[in-house]
Amino acid sequence: MAHGIAVLVEHLEGQVTDVTYELLGLARRIADTDGAEVVACLLGHGVRHVAERLPADRVVLVEDHALHYLAPEATARTFAALLRGERPWLALVPNTAIGMDVAAWVAAALDWSLVAYCQAFDRRDGRWVATAQLFGGKVLADVPLGSDPVVVSALAGAFAADAVEPGPPGTIETQEPPAELATLRTCSVRLERPEVADIDITRAEKIVAVGRGIESKDNLELAEQLAEALGAVLAASRPLVDAGWLPRSRQVGKSGLKVKPKLYLALGISGAPEHLEGMKDAELIVAVNKDPKAPIFTVADYGVVADLFDVAEALLERLEG
């Protein structure tokens, strides 16, 4: 179909990532308006069973050993070949570590235009307008889309995850991998899991940070439990590190480490400028402090004026219960 919407399915080790469902949901919304077909492009190796969980009109399945971990070169070449054949109007790719290496490559190779960091996709005045984030979201760019084919790489978490439910597609169609896969110049690919021993808070996606409000070393256990339940790592303001309650590698701030996680939950931290310097760029800052005038609230997105122990316990109960 000339107006098809192709979605690159991101998966790893048999697991389809959330962002894929977000994109399939977005594709569904666009397709319903335009009367178009949603084509989920499933590239991989031994992933046929995954196709059964992709709620699209059609799944195009391409399997090859080289596509195992969706490594950049193989995925980009295969996806480009697939788009050449399918000729959709819109190709949706997640703007993730995996998708990033595919979207820009494919767009340049096909000479399609590309809108990256897309966070919204709306119909305005009879056209689709993609909204992209620039400068880490400090500026937004509205880009109207014409009839020429376009690649849009969308930010994870920007579109509703529950617009579609995992479920079987209309049809599943298998395609041969392109001949180019035989002459790849990516020689080997393997995955490595993190060692649990060394936690690098600068790489953590979620951080629970505690300050002097935690009062004693014994109370750290509660914070530790909460961090675990949230899938976060534990960090601290400097006085706690100075006291030897946590190692130096967990100190956030001017004389510690700078962090930029997706979530920074600050418990009992006043927000001294030396501390703020290390965390103010976090994407979402939630602060719990019993002092409504604590400076941490000047950088927080959400503030809670309460006893941190009450809040932490209530959160734990819900997360674990």
């Binding site: 760019a141 959400y302 503030g303 809670v304 959160l315």
Partner: peptide, 28 residues
């Protein structure tokens, strides 16, 4: 070959934290 930007805009200001209130359970 890059897309045409129709308009740039600044996201709505969220200078101040939004405060959540209620019981600890509500807040959680």
């Amino acid at each position: 070959g890059s897309p045409r930007v129709e308009r740039l805009r600044l996201p709505e200001e969220t200078a101040q934290a939004e405060f959540l209130s209620g019981s600890p359970a509500d807040i959680a």
